[in-house]
């Protein structure tokens, strides 16, 4: 991978992130009500013109939008995401508390979904068009079509009625507090997330496996008299790995912004729930901070996936130079 290529990609990524910041700023300025009405609620109506002007000055709302943007953006670069109007806590603290929950949830869901998806994708592809392929594909389509909120709702209701266990009641136990207690809380939401994820991984694996299975080197491997297991794992799966890794990486990026419904149903204090609370309480700073963070993480994860892709596939690496 040439240094020039890397520099170009990093510059492109920086440009995208700047664009993200502009979009977030513009969209959130369009939110109904301003900081003052959000802070004071109906009391805002009783303010005199002078009081309102003083407050607008205090919150920096009297400056031009461009000035406001650069003030805000400057703060961002210094790691200042603002303060939650609702609680007075810095947004970076709130995110610091919420991020580990979401990341753990995403990692756990991946750990569950990827082996299942790869295994069933291989199973389906081993005899394409057969009964096994048909049933695995049918289950996969169902896994994609079943909305997360339905699976989550059914899981919570089922746990409550069958085991008198209510995952959404009680307080959150962090990994540091109790490993087993935390795992018990996180397992079911992770399983819910894993349903759609496993289906996606399965479909990618199936088509990548079929693609690789049809290539010449597989025929050669079989011709050499290698065992079927060796052909399948060493030759086919190894080569099908690149699209699978890419898909898993992209899905991980999506998960960081896509655990919202599950966090809400299972009452987990992750990023999604923080964002939703921010929206419901018109807490600009929180919504801005979380949206920015997730989008930035998404961009960085995609960049990393692209790099891994290039490392895994020697054909995309050279461009006449050695990495």
């Amino acid at each position: 991978m040439s240094l020039r290529y890397l520099a170009g990609r990093v510059a492109g990524m920086a440009g995208t992130l700047l664009g993200v910041a502009v979009v977030v700023f513009v969209v959130l300025r369009a939110l109904p009500g301003d900081t003052i009405t959000a802070k004071l609620g109906t009391q805002a109506a009783t303010l005199t013109a002078e009081q309102r002007a003083a407050l607008r000055h205090f919150y920096g709302l009297d400056a031009s939008p461009v000035t406001q943007f650069f003030r805000w953006f400057g703060g961002l670069l210094r790691g200042d995401l603002g303060v939650s109007i609702d609680t007075g806590v810095p947004v970076t603290h709130l995110i610091g508390d919420a991020l580990p929950v979401t990341v753990e949830l995403a990692v756990l869901a991946m750990v569950i979904a990827v082996p299942i998806g790869v295994l069933f994708g291989m199973l389906a592809a081993s005899r394409p068009g057969g009964a096994r392929d048909f049933s695995v594909q049918g289950v996969g389509l169902l896994g994609l079509a079943l909305p997360e909120f339905v699976v989550a709702t059914v899981t919570v209701a089922w746990l409550a009625s069958a085991f008198a266990y209510s995952p959404s009641a009680g307080t959150y136990v962090s990994l540091g507090d109790s490993f087993s207690g935390n795992l018990r809380q996180m397992l079911y939401p992770a399983l819910v997330l894993a349903v759609g994820l496993a289906a996606t991984v399965m479909r990618t694996t199936r088509s990548a496996y079929l693609e690789a299975a049809g290539s010449d080197f597989v025929r050669t491997a079989r011709g050499k008299g290698l065992t079927e297991a060796r052909v399948r794992f060493r030759h086919i799966l190894h080569n099908a790995g690149i699209p699978i890794v890419t898909m898993v990486g992209i899905q991980f990026g999506y998960l960081l912004g896509g655990t919202l419904i599950v966090e809400q149903v299972f009452a987990l204090p992750g990023l999604g729930r923080l964002l939703l609370d921010g929206i419901l309480h018109q807490d600009y700073a929180i919504v801005q901070g979380v949206t920015l963070l997730v989008a930035a993480a998404f961009v960085v994860v995609n960049f990393a996936v692209d790099l891994v892709y290039r490392l895994l596939d020697p054909r995309t690496r050279s461009e006449g130079r050695r990495a």
């Binding site: 664009g19 969209v27 959130l28 369009a30 919202l260 964002l275 929206i279």
Partner: peptide
């Protein structure tokens, strides 16, 4: 460039933020 920027947001998140902004 515009497409790249919009792609930087996970779909659910962007839809949510927009609905919050639009009403």
């Amino acid at each position: 460039r515009l497409t790249d920027v919009l792609f930087a947001f996970p779909a659910t998140l962007l839809a949510l933020a927009l609905v919050a902004a639009l009403g």
